[in-house]
Design a protein around this nucleic acid. Sequence first.
DNA 1: CATTAAAAGTATACACTGTTTACATTAAAC
DNA 2: GTTTAATGTAAACAGTGTATACTTTTAATG
Lengths: 212, 212
Amino acid sequence: MTRVSKKNAKKSDSYHHGNLADACIRTGLEFLAKGRSDFSFRELARALKVSPGAPYKHFETKEVLLAAIAEQGFVIFTEALAESKEISKDKGPHEKFHAMGEAYLNFAVNNPDHYRLMFTDAIPDHDLYPSLKQNSMQSFQQLTSMVEEMQDIGFFKNQDPIEQSMLIWAHVHGLSSLIIEGRIGFVLEQTGGDVQQLKAGMSEKFLAGILA
Amino acid sequence: MTRVSKKNAKKSDSYHHGNLADACIRTGLEFLAKGRSDFSFRELARALKVSPGAPYKHFETKEVLLAAIAEQGFVIFTEALAESKEISKDKGPHEKFHAMGEAYLNFAVNNPDHYRLMFTDAIPDHDLYPSLKQNSMQSFQQLTSMVEEMQDIGFFKNQDPIEQSMLIWAHVHGLSSLIIEGRIGFVLEQTGGDVQQLKAGMSEKFLAGILA
DNA sequence: CATTAAAAGTATACACTGTTTACATTAAAC
DNA sequence: GTTTAATGTAAACAGTGTATACTTTTAATG
C-alpha cells in the first residue's frame, strides 16, 4: 500500500489520521453543500473513520468547528464579491452595482445552508472567533469599497459610506434571507420564478427610491 | 386563529392536565421570551409536570409545536403593526411609514428568538402549516395596505404594490436580522448604540434612494 | 541513538435528546 | 352504566455533545 505524504492526505491504515483538523472542515463543508446542515459531530467523525472523541483534539466544541466552516464561507464569499468587481470593471456603474448584488444573491441561493451558518445564530457571538470576524469584515469591505467608488464617480449620493453600505447590505441580505427561507414564493410566481429577474427589478427601484 | 387562552386550566391533582396543548404553547412562548430558544421538548414536559410523551398527544412532532408558537408570533406581530397604524393615523405619511418600521424593528429586537423562529429555517416548510402561513400573510398584508395608502395619497411612486412591499420588507427584515444577529455592532457604535436612531436615518435614505 | 514528553488517536461513559410503544386512567357518548 | 375515545404514564431506543482515562505515534532532547 502506498504511503502518501502526511501533508496531502490521510494514511490509509495508520493510527493517526494525518490532518484531521482540515479534514473535519472539508467534510463539514461537504455536508453543508449537500444540504445536510444538521450533521452531527459524531456523524462527521464516522465519515472520517475516527472515533467520536477524535475531533475534540482539534476543536474544543462543535461550535468551534462551525465557526471555522463559517469562516471558510466568508473567504469564498469575499472572493465571489471580488470576482464580480473584476468582471464588471470595464462597465458602467449600474452594471457594477448589479454585478455585485447578483454575486451576493447567487452565493446565498446556491449555498443556503452555508449562508445561514454565516448569518444566523448557530454561532451566537462572532467576537469569540477573531479570524471569523476578520473574514466577515473583509466581505463587508468589498461592499464599502464599491460604494466609495460609486460616490467618487458621482453615481451615489455623498453620504457616510458606512451607512450607505449598511443600507445596501440590509437590502440584499433581507432579500437573500427571505428567498432562501422560502418566504416570497407568492411574489416569485409573478416573475415566473426567476430569482435574478426579481432581484434586478427590486434593486433598480431600491437605487431610485420609492418616494414619488 | 385566536390567541391562546391565558387562563391556566390545569386541575390541581388530576390525571389529565386539562389543557395541555395550550399550556405547551404558552410555556414555549415563555421559554422563548427568556431567550431559551433551544428548549427541549422534554424540558417543556418537565416544566408542565407531565411525562415526556404527553405532549405527543397534542403535537405530532416538536416542529409542529414550534409552528404553533411561530403562528402566535405572527398574531402578535400583526397586532403590533396594526397598532402602529392606529397610533399614527392622524399624522403625515413620513410618520406613518416610520411608525410601522419602528413597530417592526421593535418586535424583532424585543423578541429576537421569536422573530428567528418565524423567519429562519426552524420550520423549513411553512406550506405544511396552513394556519401559520395564513397568519404570516396577514402580517405582510399590514404592510401592503400601508403601501397602497401611500400610493393613493401620492407619497409613494405608482408601482406594483406587492413589489414595493417586498422592497420595504427586505429593507426592514434585513436590518432587523443584521441587528439581532449582532452583525452591525461597529455601525451602532457610531450612533451611540441607539438602534431606533440608526433605523430612522437609514429608512429615510431608503425612501429617497441613493442615486445622485 | 535511546529516552521521554507532547500530540493525536481509542474506548467508554454520562446525561441528555426526540420519538415510539404498550399500558393506565379518565371523560364523553350511547 | 357500559363502552369508547381521549389523554395521560413508564419504559425503551437510537442518537447526541462532551468528558475522562488510556494507548499509540510523533517530535524533541540529552
